[in-house]
């Protein structure tokens, strides 16, 4: 065959480009496009009606959306802080262990091995107002004689979800911070002790700056995780009662599949992704600043 032959690099990259296009680029463009249409799953033809920014304008004024948005940010903030503190504590305890540290490390990772769906079911049972472990324990200890409606009251349900979330993911922080502690050279800590530091000052001025990058890596991972929180909530409360635990993605999925309003749901999803991007950028900035500070070589 004569004439033009595509250059070799182009040919070699073509399969990868095709696969990427099929599984990422086209769905992305399609979903972005559909967020500018009143697309309903039940009326396929609606995909061809272009309505511009009408979906987005609607979201901007939608109280339900912003409540879910705010609740997601709140969950993210509280969960990350609690997990950070608990993870730090756990990591420091495990680091102190002179025997069985490997075993402890493995045990520490157990919660990560369970599917979030199962974690959801487990905590749904534990927080059940009639047969749940939590109420049972509280009543046996004589702390209350009422059946506390954990999953029915809005803020209690939020708390219950938070507990499940923290339980399942504290180990992300613990593992990463432990890695930081183990990688840390011991001499600066000894130097600090000789220099007159109390244990707290040693932690504050020497240990903490060193493990900060590791904490930020955990924060980045977990902020993406919590920002797309869906499974645990879906199982435990399904956004209820009366949407009082609705998070961004439970709302998006309800809009998309229960209400079949795919166009609107896609618009919501794009706004939700913005949230994730903002958090990621924020934590990466922090991470790179912390890395420069300890002059890390990675």
């Amino acid at each position: 065959m004569k004439g033009w032959r595509p250059p070799a690099p182009f040919l070699l990259l073509l399969p990868a480009v095709l696969v990427l296009a099929a599984v990422v680029i086209i769905p992305l463009i399609l979903s972005l496009y559909s967020s500018f249409t009143p697309f309903r799953l039940t009326q396929p033809a609606s995909l061809y009606t272009f309505v511009g920014f009408r979906n987005y304008a609607r979201i901007l004024t939608d109280l339900e959306f912003w409540t879910a948005f705010g609740r997601t940010v709140l969950l993210l903030t509280v969960a990350l802080n609690v997990e950070m503190l608990l993870g730090l504590g756990l990591a420091m305890l495990v680091e102190k262990a002179t025997r069985g540290q490997r075993l402890l490390r493995t045990i520490m990772m157990f919660p990560m091995m369970f599917s979030p769906i199962l974690v959801g079911f487990q905590f749904k049972f534990m927080f059940n107002d009639n047969i749940g472990l939590v109420n049972n324990a509280l009543q046996s200890l004589g702390l209350t004689n009422q059946a506390i409606p954990w999953l029915i009251d809005g803020s209690l349900a939020f708390f219950a979800i938070l507990v499940a979330e923290v339980w399942s993911s504290t180990s992300v922080f613990a593992i990463l911070i432990l890695a930081g502690l183990l990688a840390m050279p011991k001499e600066p800590i000894e130097a600090a002790r000789v220099d007159g530091c109390t244990p707290w000052q040693t932690f504050r001025y020497v240990t903490w700056p060193f493990i900060m990058p590791f904490a930020y890596i955990a924060m980045t991972i977990r902020s993406l995780d919590v920002a797309r929180a869906y499974d645990i909530v879906k199982i435990m409360t399904d956004g209820g009662p009366a949407k009082r635990t609705e998070l961004l993605w439970t709302l998006v999925s309800r809009t998309a599949y229960a209400d079949a309003r795919m166009g609107l749901a896609n618009a919501m999803a794009y706004v939700a992704i913005l949230l994730s991007i903002v958090f990621t950028v924020y934590f990466f900035r922090k991470l790179s600043a912390a890395r420069t500070q300890i002059a890390a070589e990675w």
Binding site: P188, V194, D195, Y205, A295
Partner: peptide, 13 residues
């Protein structure tokens, strides 16, 4: 007392 370590043990940050 003050100590000088073999690895210097400076505070990297």
């Amino acid at each position: 007392l003050a100590m000088v370590f073999q690895s210097y043990a400076l505070y990297p940050h």
